[in-house]
Amino acid sequence: MNLPQPSADALEQSARLVSRLRSLIEAQDGWISFATYMAEALYTPGLGYYSGGAHKFGPGGDFITAPELTPLFGQALAAQVQQVMELSAPHIIEAGAGTGLLAADLLLELEHRGALPESYGILEVSGELRERQFDTLAAKAPHLASRVRWLDSLPEHFSGALVANEVLDVMPVHLVAWRPDGIFERGVALGADGSFVWADKPAGGKVAEAAAALDVPLPDEGEYVSEINLAGRAWIAEWAARLERGAMLLVDYGYPRAEYYLDSRGTGTLLCYFRHHAHGDPFLWPGLNDITAFVDFTAVAEAGFEAGLDVLGYTNQATLLFNCGVLECLARRAPEDSVDYIRAAKAVQRLTGPHEMGELFKVIALGKDLTQPLIGFLRGDRLHTL
């Protein structure tokens, strides 16, 4: 891999996390699940990727999300958020708010529409990102910043719109290997030199149950490796217990199950990101890389349904944005020959292009006690594919 080199300070931070992980593996009889490893690598306070001080988003970080591309993403999404609030209650919670750009864009667009929420809560595990979100809101929407509150845990009760953009893909996943002699969970152990190595053991408990339910055929030879996101299912169930009226709008990259577990994806979807370079080694510089896995949206729908939520819609990002008026938002950037308009039009192409984010990213809505179809899914709904 031809990757940029981290700074000496970053490598020292990673070394401290490596030491912690080694101690954890030794304390667990020499083996931890990959889900445990991923949780530690991403969320260990002060050392994990999302809990340390690394610059993560935008051109100077490791990846760019839709809100970093253009405000038009949030402006279009605001139409759907507004409808959910009108059908439930004027409150928004955003989970994993990144740099705070989506929060600022949503609030400014809802103000333009005369539909400001009474409150905007942000659920964020990273103290460093909370500071960036505060600074972003203070710079882009200072007159609206007082509506925003940072939450330390899920509310006991909630009515309104929950928004989560690229949250499910960074929840810790279990790795499973289907082999001719059975189903195994792939975890992490220590090599003779103290390095991290893969180690399999027969799957058990909830991992075994979930793997067996997928009905992935055991191969005649070799192995089929993929991921199971039990944390995502549990998170949705927790929200279902708290949502009284409203909808969850979940945006992420992924597939319905029939496409997720294809024969051609026999090595899984796990990816790591470091300074806009994608690679497949989660043991490289723990704490300095983002670690992600694509989302099984059938599992998301099942988790919501089993917890008492209605599956209100499922489609790709392009369809949702077009249904929500992204082109009308773009038209407000006229004149069409201006530099600003041309730049915005190129961003919309990235958001909606079938070979870019438009098809790769999907949107699913799970809700309770809503009486009208959601506008983002009126055309091009793909619920039948789940």
Rank of each mutant, 00 (worst) to 15 (best):
R265A: 06
W150T: 01
L309E: 04
N229G: 04
A139E: 14
H276K: 02
A161M: 08
L151G: 04
P71Q: 06
A365M: 07
L374W: 06
L129P: 00
L214R: 01
S23Q: 11
G194W: 08
L87E: 13
S195A: 15
S14A: 14
P219V: 00
P180E: 13
E223N: 02
G100L: 00
P67K: 06
L243A: 08
R22E: 13
Y253Q: 10
Y314M: 15
D340A: 15
A192I: 10
A247P: 03
Y37I: 05
L330R: 04
S153F: 07
A231Y: 07
N229M: 06
D220W: 07
V225M: 05
H276R: 04
E328N: 12
Y273D: 05
F305C: 09
V225Q: 03
A344P: 01
N289M: 05
N165H: 15
E156P: 05
W178S: 00
V167G: 10
L110R: 03
Q349F: 07
F305Y: 13
E26Q: 13
R16E: 14
V326C: 07
C329T: 06
A97N: 04
L154Y: 11
G52F: 02
Y120F: 15
G96H: 11
N165C: 12
A199Y: 07
Y314D: 12
D340T: 14
Q83P: 13
N165F: 15
G266E: 12
H174A: 00
P354A: 05
E359L: 12
R16Q: 15
I25V: 15
G182Q: 10
E109F: 05
G30R: 09
W198V: 14
A240D: 02
Q82S: 15
G254V: 14
A278K: 14
E118P: 11
H279M: 04
R186Q: 04
A241G: 09
A199G: 07
E185Y: 00
A208R: 13
L42F: 02
D310M: 08
A10S: 15
L351S: 11
Q13H: 08
M85S: 03
E259M: 15
S338N: 11
P282Q: 04
K368H: 03
Y314Q: 12
E94Q: 09
S19W: 08
S146Y: 10
W178R: 00
G60C: 04
V173H: 01
A318R: 14
K140V: 09
A334T: 10
E40S: 13
A189Q: 07
D200E: 15
G52P: 03
A15H: 11
H91E: 12
G287Q: 05
L320C: 12
V300A: 04
F57A: 02
N2G: 07
G194R: 10
C324D: 12
V348F: 03
G304T: 06
S14F: 06
E118M: 14
R186M: 00
Q13L: 13
A177N: 02
A164D: 13
A104M: 07
F57V: 14
G268R: 01
E12R: 14
D62T: 02
T315V: 07
P354T: 08
D215V: 10
L370F: 02
L284M: 06
M1F: 13
G100H: 00
D296Y: 03
V251N: 08
P354E: 09
Q28K: 15
L249A: 06
T385W: 10
A334W: 09
L218K: 06
I183Y: 01
L42I: 01
V188I: 15
E223L: 05
D369T: 09
L24T: 09
